[in-house]
Lab assay of single mutants.
Amino acid sequence: VCQVIAMYDYAANNEDELSFSKGQLINVMNKDDPDWWQGEINGVTGLFPSNYVKM
């Protein structure tokens, strides 16, 4: 598990995705897919595009 910072706002398009705002910290749970990582914010988990965040 690592933390990343959102570089942009992201609004989920599907129920399994994670919405976040620019500057939010996201706990990364899974990086099996290079493009879509699984993350957690405040107890909510979902997929998000890895190119929207930085380490």
Rank of each mutant, 00 (worst) to 15 (best):
F48Q: 01
M7Q: 10
W36G: 02
N27R: 11
E40K: 11
K31D: 10
C2Q: 07
V28N: 00
N27T: 11
A6L: 00
M7G: 08
N30F: 07
V4Y: 15
V53F: 03
A11D: 14
T45F: 10
L47Q: 12
N42C: 14
I5T: 14
S19F: 03
P34M: 13
P34G: 12
A11W: 06
V1S: 04
S19C: 09
E17L: 06
W37Y: 06
K54E: 11
D16R: 14
E17S: 06
N27L: 09
I41G: 03
D32H: 04
N42V: 07
G46H: 00
C2R: 04
D16G: 12
V28E: 00
E17C: 07
L18V: 07
I41P: 00
Y8I: 14
M7F: 05
L18I: 13
P34L: 08
N30W: 05
I5H: 04
Y10W: 11
M29N: 04
S50M: 14
K54I: 06
Y52W: 05
K22C: 09
Y52G: 06
A6E: 01
M55E: 14
V53T: 15
T45I: 07
L25S: 13
G46M: 00
D35I: 15
C2G: 07
V53A: 09
K54F: 05
Y10K: 05
K54G: 04
W37Q: 02
K22S: 08
A6Q: 00
A6D: 00
D9R: 06
N42D: 05
K31I: 15
M29I: 11
Q24S: 09
N30T: 11
C2D: 11
Y10E: 01
E15A: 12
G39W: 00
M29R: 13
Y10P: 01
F20W: 00
G43Q: 04
Y8R: 14
A11P: 09
L25G: 11
C2W: 06
S50L: 05
D35F: 08
K31G: 12
N42F: 06
L18T: 01
D35E: 14
D9I: 02
A6T: 15
N14Q: 13
Q24K: 06
E17K: 08
P34K: 15
P34V: 11
C2K: 05
A6S: 09
S50D: 00
N42R: 10
Q24R: 06
M29T: 14
Y8K: 15
N14P: 02
I26C: 01
A11Y: 07
L47K: 15
D16C: 13
I26Y: 02
S19D: 05
I26M: 04
P49L: 05
L18M: 10
N30K: 13
N42H: 14
L25M: 15
S19A: 10
N51R: 12
F48M: 07
G43Y: 04
E40I: 07
P49N: 07
N14A: 11
I5L: 06
G23W: 04
W36S: 07
S50I: 08
I26K: 00
N30A: 13
P34F: 07
P34T: 13
L47S: 13
G39Q: 00
I41R: 12
K31P: 15
Y10S: 03
P49Q: 06
N27I: 13
G43C: 07
D16K: 14
N42G: 11
L18F: 04
V44C: 12
